[in-house]
């Protein structure tokens, strides 16, 4: 089942990147896809995180919001870079997340890191250590919205995995 998901993704990636559809090339494609499957079986990465098709809609709804947040945060950091005086005040805060599954936690930590001005430094259990560029912007309350959206996008309904 999950193997089928990886097969589908690998074939789609090859088709989108190649643009050659002669029989010889298709034979090479089949060989490379089979090799990829064998390798991923050896690495034991064929599980439900390897083919997250079920939550694709959630991620698609999450990405535009994240893009807007990244653009807003970019403006703050660009101004901080170009100021004549260096008026930054870095801070470390602990943020507690409500995300249950590993995938949701990774999504949340990567979103924090992707927005300029905040970097996730350490994850232990459901607590994260976040380094921020401005002390006033980096309080645990400012991550609640992102946390809720990540939990909605990546967590399965109800049960934790």
């Amino acid at each position: 089942m999950h193997l089928l998901g990886i097969l589908l993704a690998a074939t789609a990636f090859w088709m989108a990147n190649s643009g050659h559809y002669k029989p010889l090339m298709l034979g090479f494609a089949a060989a490379s896809v089979v090799l990829t499957l064998i390798l991923s079986l050896r690495f034991k990465i064929v599980d439900r995180e390897g083919s997250p098709y079920v939550r694709l809609l959630g991620f698609l709804a999450y990405v535009p919001w994240l893009t807007w947040e990244v653009l807003k945060a970019n403006w703050v950091v660009i101004r901080a870079c170009l100021r004549a005086d260096l008026d930054i005040s870095p801070a470390l805060v602990k943020v507690r997340t409500t995300c249950k599954s590993d995938l949701a936690k990774v999504t949340f930590a990567n979103s924090i890191t992707l927005t300029p001005g905040t970097v996730t430094v350490e994850i232990q259990g459901d607590k994260m250590l976040v380094h921020g560029l401005y002390e006033a912007n980096t309080v645990p309350e400012s991550f609640i919205g992102m946390d809720a959206r990540c939990a909605r996008a990546a967590d399965p309904k109800g049960a934790a995995s």
Partner: peptide, 24 residues
């Protein structure tokens, strides 16, 4: 972003400046 990397005082703040380059 590169100017930020050159100006900021330590590794963690330089990471923020480098992430301007990487995202926007």
């Amino acid at each position: 972003g590169t100017i930020g990397v050159l100006r900021f005082p330590d590794v963690y703040t330089r990471l923020h400046a480098a992430s301007i380059t990487d995202t926007s």
